[in-house]
């Protein structure tokens, strides 16, 4: 126990430092906090669905839980069931084999619900979508392409993978959309 306490004290608080004029990340985090309280009036519960990604986006979603981003401290937490969720965080492209599971997860999420598509693949099918004769991304025998092809999407966050800060921004944008609805 002594060793654990010593290591905790030695590590200190890693969660990004208090607001400074040039600390863009911190000001975003504070804004997220205020937005969540303002629009949802409580904590935000997120259900993550991997609908066919390469697992790169999952790596960055995991990082949101680390001490630097500390999303729990912002009142955002990941939940185990869509029935407990306010928001779905979906990575893609949506494989044909995940199409039904994703639709069912969406249906199981109570209204009003938000959907944030993560990554280049979630946003437009990315590298896994072939291009048609016009050069546009199209679906394939195995992939439905972007998440919006399968369920309604509020916000799409580009990046391969998007950084944790970009994902946080996407969550904020979706939450502030809620008011406009």
């Amino acid at each position: 126990m002594y060793q654990i306490i010593r290591q905790i004290l030695r590590t200190g608080i890693k969660t990004e430092t208090p607001p400074q004029p040039d600390d863009t990340l911190r000001s975003q985090i504070q804004e997220i906090n205020a937005q969540i309280l303002h629009h949802v009036g409580r904590a935000l519960a997120i259900r993550h669905v991997d609908a066919g990604s390469c697992n790169g986006c999952e790596l960055e979603i995991h990082c949101l839980n680390n001490a630097y981003y500390n999303i729990d401290g912002l009142g955002i937490h990941f939940v185990a069931s869509p029935r407990h969720a306010d928001m779905l965080l979906v990575t893609g492209p949506v494989s044909r084999h995940m199409e039904i599971a994703l639709k069912r997860t969406y249906d199981a999420t109570p209204d009003p619900k938000l959907v944030v598509a993560i990554g280049d693949c979630g946003g437009d099918g990315g590298i896994f979508s072939p291009s048609n004769a016009l050069g546009d991304k199209c679906e394939s025998y195995a992939s439905c392409g972007k998440v919006a092809n399968v369920i309604p999407v509020d916000v799409a966050v580009p990046g391969c993978p998007p950084t944790p800060v970009a994902i946080l921004q996407g969550i904020l944008t979706a939450v502030s959309n809620l008011k406009a609805r």
């Binding site: 492209p93 084999h97 995940m98 992939s143």
Partner: peptide, 21 residues
Amino acid sequence: YTHKGIEKRFEGMVLEQGARL
């Protein structure tokens, strides 16, 4: 479940293109 046709996607790509996939 995450079968998205990667091997079919590779086919016909120029060698340089394939690196990203």
